[in-house]
Every structure is written in C-alpha cells, then in structure tokens.
C-alpha cells in the first residue's frame, strides 16, 4: 500500500466532491439551499455516460451532463424562488425526481459496455516536483486540473469581484440588495443553475473519469449529501471546501485500498484477514461527515460565524424581510 498512490487517487476522487461542494456553496451563498445535489449528480453521471456511449465523445457527455443537471436545478429554483415554497422539501423532491429519472433513463446502461473516457495527462514541469508532482500533477484526469483551477477562481470571484459581492449581498440581505438595484430573483436563479451545472459536472466526473460506468444509485452512493455537509463544514468558504473535498476523497480511497495488502505497517493486515470489517470501514466516510459537521458547528458557535443570513428564506418583494 503506497501512500502516494492513495493520495493520488484521493485527489481524483476528491474532485467529485469538490465540484458538487463548490456548486452548492454558490447556491447557498445566494440564499437558496438545494438539497437536490445527490439527484443532480446522478442525472449528470447518467447523461454523461449515455451520451459518451452513443456519440463516442466524452466531452459532449460532460456538456450534456452539466446542462441536464442545470435544467433539473431550475425546477428547484422555480419552486423555491418564484413559488416561495419550502426549500428543504423542494430539494428533497428534486432528489427523488432526479434519482427516478436517471434510473428510468439509465435502465440497461450498466451493461452497455465500455465508453471512451476523458483523457489522463501529466503536466510537464509541475509533475517533476518531488512528492507533490506525483500526487497532484501526474496522470490525473483533465477534470482534476479543471478542479484545481476552479478553487482560486471561486475564491477570488466570491471575495474580490463585484458580481461576487452582489452574490453575497443577495444571500445576506436581499432587501438591501434589491434596493440597490440588484436583481435578487435573477441572481438566485443563476446561482442555483450554476450549482446544478457543477453538480452535473461532478456526476460526469464519476461516470467518465474517476470510477467509470453507471451503477444506478450506487454511482454516487451519498456523495451529494456529503457535499452538502462539506459546505457547512467549510462555512461557505471555497478554500475550506476544497480542503474538505480532497480530505474526504483521500479518506474514501484509503478505506478502499486498506483491505488489499496482506501486511500493514509490517503487521498482518486485520482488514485483509477479516473481510467483513469492510462494513465497519464503509461507515467511516459517513461517520466522519458527522464529526466534521460537529467540528464546524462548534467553531461557528464560538466565532459567531454562520450561514448566509437569508439562507432558506424566499425573498418576497415589499415584505419586511430580514
């Protein structure tokens, strides 16, 4: 069991969480919780895989996946923003709906055979850096590098650009933003759409790059929900979100790989000789999510940090809001 191999694979599987987490982060920053991430990821994974299968072009698959998930997210946007319904229930409904749709349309896809996947590449100079080069820049999927680029972009956008400031204003104090001439409704629709697009990208990352294929609901196996947990842990900060995503990716790989070798640190590997301990290992990512949430919540309580003030609250013009 080589640590570098695990971290290398961890960065790859962390990319899945990264896209979904950043997408949800944008939506929540604008004041809309979208609990449909898991469903949108499934839609993304399913449509990416089937488009790549039928056209032979994985890139087209990625684009369609993003659009399909973005489309689904707009149902949530319509219900939550225009119809002002409860966002929690609406998000859950989106998960059911999207899961159902992807199961229906993905019927038979799991036996469909191999598709052309997205290419893996090494970055010429950066891959020469000792240790880091081997983990981050050698033979990773293109999408992993897109993920690397997205982190600083999201961070800079949210904190240092004008639209980013509008985004935060809409999530913190929509009435004031409205008074300043910012179109609260349009921005919220847009960021829910962005969240959907990124969730679709995250799904495509699974089915076309990280663990290729369509395994119905097991394709995502709850990663959409972990992403929502990570947003809370990250306290709506993209850098912390990225850290959380990669840490969880590495953890997933560790759990997966630890059962392989016969010896562990020179001792007999208990996980190899007791394969049923695998079930205990399977609990780990989910247990860690809860632990991470507890840590995040304690910290938020202590520092009086918190969610965007208007999160989950529909904005109704002319009504005294927050």
């Amino acid at each position: 069991m080589d640590l570098i191999i695990i971290l290398h694979a961890g960065v790859a599987s962390g990319t899945v969480l990264l896209f979904a987490t950043l997408g949800e982060l944008f939506a929540e920053r604008s004041g809309v919780i979208n609990l449909g991430v898991e469903g949108m990821m499934l839609i993304g994974a399913m449509s990416a895989y089937s488009v790549a299968l039928y056209t032979g072009n994985p890139w087209l698959g990625v684009v369609i996946a993003m659009l399909a998930a973005g489309l689904i997210s707009q149902i949530h946007a319509f219900i939550a923003i225009t119809l002002q319904a409860d966002q929690v229930v609406s998000g859950l409904a989106i998960t059911f709906l999207a899961t159902g749709i992807s199961l229906v349309l993905g019927e038979g896809l799991s036996k469909a055979g191999a598709v052309s996947l997205l290419p893996n590449l090494s970055i010429p100079l950066l891959s020469q850096i000792p240790l880091l080069g081997a983990i981050f820049f050698t033979k990773q999927s293109v999408l992993v590098y897109i993920g690397f680029l997205l982190i600083p972009l999201a961070w800079y956008y949210i904190y240092y650009t004008r639209p980013g400031m509008h985004l935060r204003a809409v999530g913190e104090y929509p009435a004031a933003a409205d008074a300043l001439g910012i179109n609260v409704f349009r921005l919220r629709y847009f960021y829910v759409f962005l969240g959907g697009i990124l969730a679709g990208l995250s799904g495509a990352t699974i089915s076309l790059a990280i663990s290729p294929g369509w395994f119905s609901e097991l394709t995502t196996s709850g990663q959409g929900w972990i992403a929502i947990g990570l947003v809370i842990f990250a306290q709506w900060d993209p850098l912390r979100a990225a850290f959380g995503a990669y840490a969880f990716g590495a953890l997933r790989r560790l759990i997966f790989d630890i059962q392989g070798p016969t010896t562990l640190l020179g001792l007999a590997n208990p996980f190899y000789y007791n394969p049923y301990w695998g079930f205990i290992l399977q609990m780990m990512p989910y247990a860690f999510t809860i632990i991470v949430l507890v840590i995040g919540s304690r910290e938020a309580l202590r520092k009086r940090l918190g969610a965007p003030a208007a999160i989950g609250v529909p904005y109704i013009r002319g009504e005294r809001g927050l």
């Binding site: 319904a85 609406s90 409904a93 998960t95 059911f96 709906l97 159902g100 019927e107």
Partner: peptide, 16 residues
C-alpha cells in the same frame, strides 16, 4: 425506476 420517478414527480407537483 418508474415508481421512484412518479413519486418524485408527484411530490414536486404537490409542493408547487
């Protein structure tokens, strides 16, 4: 997956 999809659609329509 059909029953699941119909359940989802029913819920979405009802909330709306």
């Amino acid at each position: 997956g059909l029953p699941k999809m119909i359940q989802g659609i029913i819920l979405v329509c009802l909330i709306a």
